[in-house]
Design a protein around this nucleic acid. Structure first.
Lengths: 221, 221
DNA sequence: TAACCTATTGAACATGAGTTCAGCCAAGCG
DNA sequence: CGCTTGGCTGAACTCATGTTCAATAGGTTA
């Protein structure tokens, strides 16, 4: 299934594939509100053909979702065999060619729904693995609840970039990779500060909480 | 100007005010894609009247923005005179009556644009003040760059909740206050862990960075 | 009561966008 | 050369939605 009927190289794809790629590009750049006509123009075909191949705009969206998920899965299995511990987002960001997919993943998560949850859960799993690896080699502190910490870290990290992206002026071309990189560079200092030295000077809040959970004040009736 | 022509109490507002409140409710609950007809129904008036009073849907949106911003400003000035150091979001969340406004603020930021930036910058300022107060009383560690740390913390905290909200099944009623509260309760442990003990075991990354900024390896030509 | 003004309605209009469909065209085949 | 087939077009259709407008109701004033 890996090689299509025709040659599978860049500009000489099946029209169906070209439309799908154009849709991923458009959806990623402008969100899922883009018109079928815009996608058709980007692909260099008529609006009718888009529907002819995919049945409806929703089904086109579905096909894009499937394609991106498949790509992410592929990257994931590759990274397992090659012992690459980066999250799939970082791996997407590392390859120039994958740029549209990053945009698409952000839009998908931003739009919510089942695909968002699926992708987001995968990110959390990535982060959990990443933290566990750090823990194993001694660079990351062990947590009393590693799963929850991973969820917390993932929500914070991904959410921060999502907010940053949302604040961009709409209508402009959004360079997701640049934003991710700038975020990382711009805020290394506070991130490293908090992650190595903490934010609070005293243990009182943590200790109080730990005492609280080990001996709850009142079990609700 | 504070008291309108008629009685200003809850259910007996000017039609214009009732429409505006209905719009804030609808926009907050379902996003800015809701139809004028839906807003009209919520307000118990005809679609025509909505346009009659506000000119267009965009102007209605504008009026809602203005009203919410005004409320936030009011809360802010009140909190200054009463020395209340909570962020405006926390203050909104504390009062039952303000529930729709929380939803609206989230939707506004989620939708992006100038109002989003304005509200978000205000949140950052709130966080910065909050951290500075903690620093002054000795509970929060001083930062080498307090402003950046505040931006980083705000992006993380707000982004995390934004992600959580986005993951809710669309179409359902979204209880923003409940989500915020559950997030706080559910993830107290990892948050306190990281904030008091840090995430990393060694200072090497931070120290390397501090050395790097004080003595950059190569100034780009 | 009559005039009048304002708020309000409900039907109609305009537009944008997803979708349909009858037909065209180029390629393969007898 | 003529036939068939399947990808493809572009004009037309449908529907949702923002918006307009003539007509109405209800209260206020002379």
């Amino acid at each position: 299934m890996s090689s299509a009927k025709r040659s599978d190289s860049a500009s000489d794809l099946t029209a169906r594939a070209r439309i799908r790629d154009a849709a991923i590009e458009c959806f990623g750049q402008h969100g899922f509100g883009v018109t079928v006509r815009a996608v058709a123009e980007q692909a260099g075909v008529s609006p009718g053909l888009v529907i002819h191949h995919f049945g409806s705009k929703d089904k086109l969206r579905q096909a894009c979702d499937d394609h991106v998920i498949a790509l992410v899965n592929e990257i994931k299995t590759e990274s397992i065999t090659s012992h690459d511990s980066r999250t799939f987002l970082h791996q997407l960001a590392a390859v120039e060619e994958y740029t549209p997919y990053i945009a698409y993943v952000f839009r998908a998560v931003q739009a919510g729904g089942p695909i968002a949850v699926s992708l987001y859960e995968r990110m959390i799993a990535d982060v959990e693995g990443y933290l566990a690896a750090g823990e194993a080699e001694g660079t990351v502190r062990p947590s009393r609840d590693p799963a929850k910490r991973a969820r917390w870290m993932a929500a914070n990290s991904f959410g921060a970039v999502l907010v940053l992206i949302t604040m961009q002026q709409p209508g402009q071309q959004i360079d997701f990779v640049r934003i991710i990189r700038e975020w990382s560079e711009e805020y290394i200092l506070p991130a490293l500060e908090v992650y190595t030295e903490g934010l609070l000077t005293e243990r009182t809040m943590l200790d109080a909480y730990l005492l609280y959970v080990s001996d709850p004040p009142a079990e609700s009736g």
